[in-house]
């Protein structure tokens, strides 16, 4: 475990908790894509199938449980919470994410480290995480609503991606057998999509601040 990966895990966790707290505090999920949050929950559920079989460390196990619980809590809030669900932009969050899930699963069947259930689902979760932001990106382009997508959320999400890439570079130079091409290539694609999301976030945020200024 290196500091970059630890910091990356922490910023990733904080970004999820910021979103969860924001939804819970404002009792609103306007501008947030339920589909992206469902994809994230699916990423954690399919990636941590080894939660009860492989014990890596207490940290690893605790973090897996926290990631699964927090991502499911966001989905539950957006689907079931009587107040929150009313503010969901159902008719704007129309990205057909089932095709993305299917494409990632087919790719995982073809490109994986070992053709076992666990490895195929692990590769699936890696590919899915890379494209999970797409419904949120589409919703942001359509609604321009950044009320619940706070700047801190975007900041920590960016920090998570950046730190993980530094972690891979660090491990590449310090460990001889570090070959995680699936995670690295997919992670780079994910970071590229996040950069696109951040760009549209900035545009929406700029427009909103202009709109909010006294006319």
């Amino acid at each position: 475990m290196n500091i970059f990966r630890f910091a990356g895990d922490m910023t990733h966790l904080i970004s999820i908790l910021i979103l969860l707290l924001k939804i819970y505090a404002t009792k609103s999920c306007a501008g947030i894509s339920l589909k992206t949050q469902e994809l994230y929950a699916l990423v954690f559920l399919t990636r941590y199938l080894d939660l009860f079989t492989d014990y890596v460390s207490l940290y690893n196990t605790v973090m897996k449980i926290v990631f699964i619980a927090s991502s499911l809590a966001i989905v539950w809030c957006m689907r079931r919470h009587p107040l929150v669900r009313r503010s969901y932009d159902k008719d704007l969050d129309t990205f057909r994410h089932q095709y993305v899930v299917l494409a990632c699963f087919v790719l995982a069947l073809l490109l994986n480290e070992k053709f076992t259930i666990q490895e195929v689902f692990w590769a699936f979760s890696i590919y899915l995480e890379a494209v999970a932001i797409l419904p949120q990106l589409v919703l942001l382009q359509r609604s321009g609503n950044v009320d619940n997508l706070t700047g801190q959320y975007v900041l920590f999400l960016g920090a998570y991606r950046g730190l993980y890439i530094i972690n891979w570079i660090y491990r590449y130079f310090t460990e001889d057998h570090f070959t995680r091409w699936i995670a690295c290539v997919s992670g780079l694609v994910q970071t590229g999509l996040y950069a696109d999301f951040f760009y549209y976030y900035y545009l929406s945020w700029k427009t909103n601040t202009k709109l909010k200024l006294p006319a």
Binding site: M1, R5, D9, H12, R47, D50, T53, D54, Y55, V56, S57, N60, M63, K64, F67, E113, Q118, E119, W122, N167, R180, A183
Partner: peptide
């Protein structure tokens, strides 16, 4: 700290 499945990253 490697897991049997070799995935030690979250």
């Amino acid at each position: 700290e490697e897991a049997e499945s070799g995935h030690d990253e979250l």
